[in-house]
């Protein structure tokens, strides 16, 4: 299988493209996923004005036509709910909820409808839908376009949550998400779109619920996800220069979560630091720490530490936003503080 270097954005585009070729029931809709629908000068060769707000779905409308790639009104409740309805009756919709912060206007359709139908109906319905949404701070996009919020979705039974960190994982995890029979929330960090990595040309899947051991080490375990995987790996390099060898576990999926990967690593290193860009309360970070406290307490040589965004909204001003995001320096100093 030939691999080449492409961006995270292209990897996501490719997963959608290949799954749409493979399965005619896969459709994509969201605000401006093509753009310019019904304008006379956009017709003909199925031209598109945008291909998504950050051009992630570019070229899909021209290839699959506007019956399978649909622009929507700015009506998130209606089209996310329509994804639930379509999924439970035979399609595999991918709905793009542009920024995760917008879940606020359509949460009922996600957590009361999509997440609960299969269980509530005694297993007689399946909801094979994917909601793709952008997350993350650092884009100077201010409080209502910058949050992570994946912890909230992880809290909801019936939803799967996925947060890829590399182009390879983005493509493989999205293919899995599209083929999965449960609703999957698929979160794309906007500052990862331009990052590059090796990605096979062909279709492949990366299983949901399996963590990736990014770096082996013996002194401490960093459990992390999304953009923070890269920060953690940079910190690991710096720590190695100081003779501290950390293991870095990329969770990749938050629901289901690979508890074994976390516990096995902590049993080996005896120290845990969780690095999470989301806010700290009732979060992925607290969840991982709780798991370790509950099931590997006797293995710990030091308190578990959480490095997260503060318990505040995301500020706009660049210096403030940079201070909001967990830093490589904080990861390094926190790990060092545990080594005593």
């Amino acid at each position: 299988m030939a691999a080449r270097t492409i961006t995270f954005r292209e990897a996501i585009n490719e997963a959608m493209r290949l799954e749409m070729r493979r399965d005619p029931t896969v459709i994509l809709f969201g605000e401006d996923v093509a753009g310019g629908a019904t304008l006379p000068h956009m017709e003909g060769e199925n031209k598109e004005a945008w291909g998504g707000v950050l051009a992630v779905s570019t070229g899909l409308a021209p290839e699959f036509g506007r019956n399978r790639v649909l622009d929507t009104p700015i009506s998130e409740s209606a089209f996310i709910g329509a994804a639930v309805g379509a999924a439970s009756t035979g399609l595999r919709p991918i709905a793009e909820l542009m920024f995760v912060d917008f879940f606020g206007v359509c949460f009922d359709q996600i957590f009361n409808q999509g997440a609960k139908l299969r269980y509530m109906f005694g297993g007689k319905a399946q909801v094979p839908m994917v909601v793709r949404s952008m997350i993350g701070a650092g884009f100077r996009a201010a409080a209502q376009h910058s949050e992570c919020l994946y912890s909230i979705f992880t809290h909801i039974p019936g939803l799967k949550t996925v947060v890829p960190s590399t182009p390879y994982d983005a493509k493989g995890l999205l293919s899995s998400a599209i083929r999965d029979n449960d609703p999957v929330m698929f979160f794309e960090h906007k500052l990862l779109y331009d990052t590059q990595g090796e990605v096979p040309e062909d279709n492949y899947t990366v299983p949901l619920g399996v963590a990736d051991l990014k770096r082996e080490g013996s002194d401490a375990t960093i459990v992390t996800v999304g953009r923070m995987v890269h920060f953690s790996l940079q910190a690991a390099e710096k720590l190695a220069e100081n003779g501290v060898n950390v293991e870095v576990v990329d969770l990749r999926s938050l629901s289901p979560m690979d508890g074994d990967a976390i516990l096995n690593s902590v049993k080996k290193t005896h120290r845990l630091v969780v690095v999470d860009e989301d806010n700290p309360r009732c979060s992925v970070a607290t969840d991982v720490v709780a798991l370790v406290a509950d099931q590997a307490f006797d293995y710990l040589d030091a308190p578990c530490k959480m490095i997260t965004a503060p318990h505040t909204p995301v500020p706009f001003s660049p210096g403030l936003e940079d201070a909001y995001i967990p830093s490589v320096e904080t990861i390094v100093s926190t790990v060092k503080s545990l080594m005593g």
């Binding site: 912060d101 606020g104 409080a143 500020p315």
Partner: peptide, 22 residues
């Protein structure tokens, strides 16, 4: 500086804020 272009507000002037949510 905490709001930015999309959140300019001045409640004293009766301006309840630009808004990032449509």
């Amino acid at each position: 500086g905490k709001g930015g272009s999309m959140h300019i507000a001045d409640v004293d002037k009766g301006m309840l804020g630009a808004n990032g949510i449509v």
